[in-house]
Design a protein around this nucleic acid. Structure first.
Lengths: 335, 335
DNA sequence: CGCACATTTTGAATCGATTCATGAAGGGGT
DNA sequence: ACCCCTTCATGAATCGATTCAAAATGTGCG
């Protein structure tokens, strides 16, 4: 109950509140003797600073929020891991928000983050309808960096991986292996990354005259991969290779194929995207398109603090990384 | 810059701040006409409530923190997922803190959470040295629920899975398959769950006269599993089965064994713990001990709100779930 | 008209930390 | 003794939302 405040500490130590505040925030400005007396009182009373009051005065919180599409996806946890050290060493506090690929959840998070006057934001927007909300935050002077999203015409800093190129890499690899009938599995297509990967894939398919079958899914997880396989197996002209929009989908697909006795890669090759750690450990080690995950996070954090530091005169930077093909057993078969 | 406050809204709408506050918090107490006028002003000015000020007044925040050992471990993300709906439907905001199995990081998080006057806490403590800090929070009236930790003599609510029994299940399963020389891989042993799993395993080994080799690891991830295998392969009397303290370790081990050409389960069986989704999708589908992950989260949240609701007259409850053996290919071989 | 009563609105007090102009105390130099 | 500096400590003002007793306004009825 008795939440002890600075006033209590001040009384106990026989000083003014101003002095207590100084002990906490600029100890060097307080005489040694006074300082130890105040510190003793703090310990004695078990006093804990009230962050709300602090923030109220400061006008900003120390929190940097990272809004991701799916915390259960190792891709995003790695991005967060990459960003954390820099944020923390700058005295920030990281909070992770999971939009779950749902615009409404994303919106709710953004509302709350705005009310909390967060220091800044790293966000992977769910889709283009997120834009207006993001502009709103930005308009209210909350600096933000778009993650895994080529900023295109958005007036923001961003870090991204060239997803169109990633799509090309995957499709070319499958083409090189002799596949002429390819399935793309992923969705919703409203997610820009997915659209880009598909675009790259489509481009190569047209260039090389491959048949492309698109299986749109509602999400990017195990279940999506499994369901897509169920559909695919129903077709008379079954594709000989699948390009899955991320590794979770690919692993789900792999599982379903194995369950149906379809041999991977002999009867159906699979390539995923992200190259999460689990990919290499899969039933059939999974070929994938690797993204520099933690570097993505680190760079995003860097850009954010640059922006915070530079203030008004800041010019936005857009960093684009290149993805990389990692070939493993799941595409090892030449047709 | 111009952070608009309630005062600005009040002026714009020609009412007092009290009325603006009422529009936001008890609209039914405000006359229709006034309400719409105020709402118009809010929209017009793009006003956003300042949560710090709100919290300062309220004395508490709406945030429920979940402190986990490793966000990258699907076990914990599932626990969080299980807890979220209940927390959010109660008007709470969830924040996830990753202690990374590191007491110092955990402590830093707890300090900050205490300063933020969080509404409550779901925590999986790193080890027993966390206890004093947890008592401190608890002493400052922050209700908390221990997750995945039989509260034993701790005066708190808790949800847990019987890890000793889980250890037994795993060991018995291996014994039933004819294994007489077992490796336990996991650590650090200071983590109570790990100690318990080992204890259950040891108990069965002694009971049935199996040789038990313990490989202590520094963490619970892929790398730990790989390293343990390197060590194990060096032995002259190599165990014929491994019990890994969680699935990440097991997958790492599986990967390393495969790389060294050791056939699973013929030459070495593996059983993991948690039964994360990836377990079934592994190179060799992984046997595991399943825990009711999301139920764990849901129940924890439930207990927390019970405690918050009941206030002082609350009696702590300790809920224990039973784990379940899921046998798959990685232990399919009879010796 | 006047009184009782219900409906709205008001605005000052409050939460707790930070800031900063002001003042007090002590030291040195002349 | 006097003045100038430096070093410390003070406490009132401030941040923005909420609360609540009190005031204002309106309604109905005798």
């Amino acid at each position: 109950m008795t939440t002890t405040s600075m006033k209590d500490v001040a009384r106990a130590a026989g000083v003014s509140v101003g002095t207590v505040s100084n002990v906490l925030n600029r100890p060097e400005a307080v005489a040694e003797e006074t300082r130890t007396r105040v510190q003793a009182a703090i310990a004695e009373l078990g006093y804990v600073r009230n962050d709300s009051a602090r923030q109220l005065r400061a006008g900003r919180s120390r929190t940097v929020a990272v809004v991701v599409l799916d915390v259960a996806n190792p891709f995003f946890t790695d991005v967060v891991r990459g960003a954390e050290p820099l944020i923390e060493s700058a005295g920030g506090v990281v909070t992770v928000c999971d939009s779950g690929e749902d615009v409404r959840r994303e919106r709710r998070h953004l509302e709350i983050l705005e009310e909390q006057r967060v220091l800044g934001l790293l966000i992977t927007p769910v889709d283009d309808t997120s834009a207006s909300w993001i502009e709103r935050l930005s308009g209210h002077d909350i600096p933000l960096v778009l993650v895994d999203r080529g900023a295109g015409r958005h007036p923001h800093c961003s870090v991204a991986v060239d997803d169109v190129h990633g799509g090309r890499l995957a499709a070319r690899h499958l083409a090189d292996r002799g596949h002429a009938r390819i399935a793309f599995v992923g969705g919703p297509v409203s997610i820009p990354q997915i659209a880009d990967r598909l675009a790259g894939c489509r481009e190569v398919c047209e260039e090389r005259g491959l048949a492309l079958e698109v299986f749109t899914t509602a999400g990017l997880n195990f279940a999506a991969g499994r369901e897509a396989v169920e559909q695919m197996l129903g077709l008379e002209q079954r594709p000989t290779a699948m390009f899955c929009a991320n590794d979770l989908v690919a692993l789900g697909a792999l599982q379903a194929l194995t369950m149906h006795g379809v041999k991977v890669p002999q009867e159906c090759a699979i390539i995923g995207y992200d190259d999460i750690d689990f990919a290499a450990a899969a039933a059939v080690p999974l070929s994938s398109i690797r993204q520099p995950r933690s570097q993505l996070g680190r760079t995003a954090a860097q850009l954010l603090f640059d922006e915070i530091g530079e203030g008004a005169g800041h010019t936005h930077r857009n960093v684009v990384f290149q993805p990389e093909l990692i070939a493993r057993a799941s595409t090892a078969q030449e047709l």
